[in-house]
């Protein structure tokens, strides 16, 4: 009695549940790996850009590079680019108010920041729902399987453990698969949420500091 025979021997609803859970598990692992790569890259690029920025490079040169290589630039670079573009555009207009200038710069940076955060946080909600729902789905499969197993038991003259055990084992496989899907998803969700939060703090503090620098340039 191997696990495979347990799976193939299960009733159709239980098999459907198992299939759904397998899909959920596949997708959640896919997103987990994708997110690992994305977040690692974002952290690396952020660190690189911060180092470059604070090493006192020319803002114009940085802007030129960020604008030309927009596709390959990191999140922080894009925030910087959006803010700086808005700032230079505004400054060229005659009779610009400093407060309005800084406001619009900050707004531009804010908008980019939000867009970037959205893409970083994407599919985290999927992981969260897999983590919280798949145990229940697995449990549903198990309950269904056990129900069937007991219903079959009603027609047996003398019920031995041998009659019940295979059905229950079949049913419990569903819970096992649900937990297999849920545990990594929950762990990954917690980890990624923390990582994204830390990145967000870095972005926000950078944009504050950058607006200060720009404000100093106006005067």
């Amino acid at each position: 009695m191997s696990v495979l025979s347990l799976i193939t021997g299960a009733s159709v609803p239980v098999q459907l549940v198992m299939g759904a859970l397998l899909l959920a598990s596949l997708f959640s692992w896919y997103y987990i790996f994708l997110k690992i790569f994305t977040l690692r890259r974002a952290a690396r690029q952020t660190a690189e850009f911060e180092r470059e920025f604070w090493s006192g490079a020319d803002l114009n040169a940085l802007y030129q590079r960020a604008a030309s290589g927009r596709e390959s630039s990191g999140t922080l670079e894009r925030i910087f680019e959006a803010g700086f573009r808005e700032f230079t555009k505004h400054r060229r207009e005659p009779g610009a108010d400093v407060a309005a200038l800084m406001d619009s710069t900050r707004r531009a940076m804010r908008a980019t920041y939000q867009r970037e955060m959205d893409s970083l946080e994407s599919s985290l909600s999927f992981l969260a729902s897999v983590g919280s729902v798949s145990p229940y789905v697995g449990l549903l499969g198990t309950v269904w399987g056990i129900m069937n197993s007991f219903r079959g038991l009603a027609n047996v003259a003398q019920a031995t453990l041998g009659h019940v055990a295979p059905g229950i084992a079949e049913a419990l496989i569903a819970t096992a698969i649900g937990l297999f899907a849920a545990i990594p998803a929950v762990v990954a969700y917690n980890r990624f949420a923390g990582d994204v939060n830390r990145l967000a703090i870095r972005f926000e503090s950078f944009s504050e500091e950058f607006s200060n620098i720009l404000q100093r340039q106006v005067r």
């Binding site: 495979l4 790996f33 596709e71 390959s72 096992a176």
Partner: peptide, 29 residues
């Protein structure tokens, strides 16, 4: 370049996903 990077990351993620599931299945069986 970013597109290429992204798609390669996706491919990697897919491959690793399958590896993980095969491992799980082997463990289970």
């Amino acid at each position: 370049a970013a597109m290429a990077l992204r798609s390669s990351a996706e491919a990697w993620a897919g491959a690793l996903t399958f590896t993980v599931h095969l491992l799980l299945l082997a463990l289970l069986v």
